[in-house]
Design a protein around this nucleic acid. Structure first.
Lengths: 188, 188
DNA sequence: GGGAGCATGTAACGGGTTACATGATTGG
DNA sequence: CCAATCATGTAACCCGTTACATGCTCCC
């Protein structure tokens, strides 16, 4: 049993994402991790439930990729905060450099509606698409705002670049939906 | 208990997708549905496992949204083929016109790698991104080919439009990755 | 004869969700 | 005082996957 093999346990992708968050900052509570995920990961990867995060955190601790301690603030209720271990750092390095990325997953139910448009009303579908377009533009703006928050230096700059990518993604999506609505109109 | 409520049972999204496939064509076997899904749905929505399809088909039959019969071809082994019922047609119409589309799901693990790039090697990451870009271009070409196969008329034309959308999606993705690689280089 | 494609199905597993439960602190 | 936010956790459920199992037909 080599040490190399120990560096990269077989984990669900969600675990890697949580470990990734811990690689940015120490002493995060489950609650913190959730907020983090919602404000960056959610744009391009993942929008996990609260309960799942706590499960993952416990898993990482069991595998000794993270440790936790209970933080007693002056006042308030205690909270359990997590920190990546040296082993965890080695694991995430191995993940980044040695593990094949999972294939991209896209589940766009709006396009599914277009695909099955012979079953429904076209006007209604186009309205729905326009609403989706507007939501995409808002998401682009939100991603952009978070990207600016990430700052130019330190580890965070890559997370900022991922958010810039997200902004472009949602802007492009909005443009594509505009094209799609036109395309559907021309078909009518 | 109104009949209206009966028209749209609460189904997992996968069921709706399978029912959607049955709304295009009659007498499809599980095997047929799988091939269909891989050649159109997979581009914008879903790449299901074979076993799941059979499960969904049985579910649809249990709910009387589809019927099946065993087809005895002249030769060969028998196969069970499915057909949408009137109830199923009403259900999918209600789905198209009354049910809110699920939010779009995106899980792009390549961008996750960028986000966590401080943990790994930059050169390797860029290589990976370029490979991903090439795969996206191939996907665009495949979508385009299937779109041309869909034809101009009948119900299929909407499925063709969804595939045209997919072509654009993957082309845009490739362009975005080019931008991303440049952006990462400028950061180095 | 053997491999590729057609065709269907079961069993085990687990990842992730929703719903529920609890309770403390802070600010209006 | 009440609502919002912080904070953590359990239980039930099920969707969907992988792996396994089977067997036919067609064509080289």
């Amino acid at each position: 049993m080599s040490e190399g093999a120990m560096n990269m346990p077989d984990l669900p992708s969600t675990s890697w994402a949580v470990l990734g968050i811990l690689s940015f900052e120490s002493d995060l509570s489950g609650y913190d991790v959730k907020r983090w995920a919602d404000q960056s990961l959610a744009f391009f990867y993942w929008a996990p439930s609260q309960s799942q995060i706590y499960t993952e955190l416990r898993r990482l601790e069991r595998l000794e990729l993270a440790t936790s301690r209970v933080e007693q603030t002056h006042v308030a209720k205690s909270r359990r905060v997590y920190r990546i271990t040296a082993q965890g750092q080695a694991a995430i390095r191995a993940w980044a450099d040695e593990l094949e990325p999972d294939p991209m997953v896209l589940k766009n139910s709006h396009i599914l509606r277009v695909w099955a448009a012979h079953n429904g009303d076209m006007g209604r579908l186009c309205d729905e698409l326009r609403a989706y377009r507007d939501a995409a533009i808002e998401k682009a703006a939100a991603a952009s705002a978070h990207a600016r928050g990430a700052g130019r230096d330190s580890a965070w700059r890559f997370s900022g670049i991922a958010l810039e990518w997200s902004e472009r993604f949602y802007r492009d999506e909005a443009t594509r939906i505009d094209w799609l609505v036109d395309r559907l109109r021309s078909e009518r």
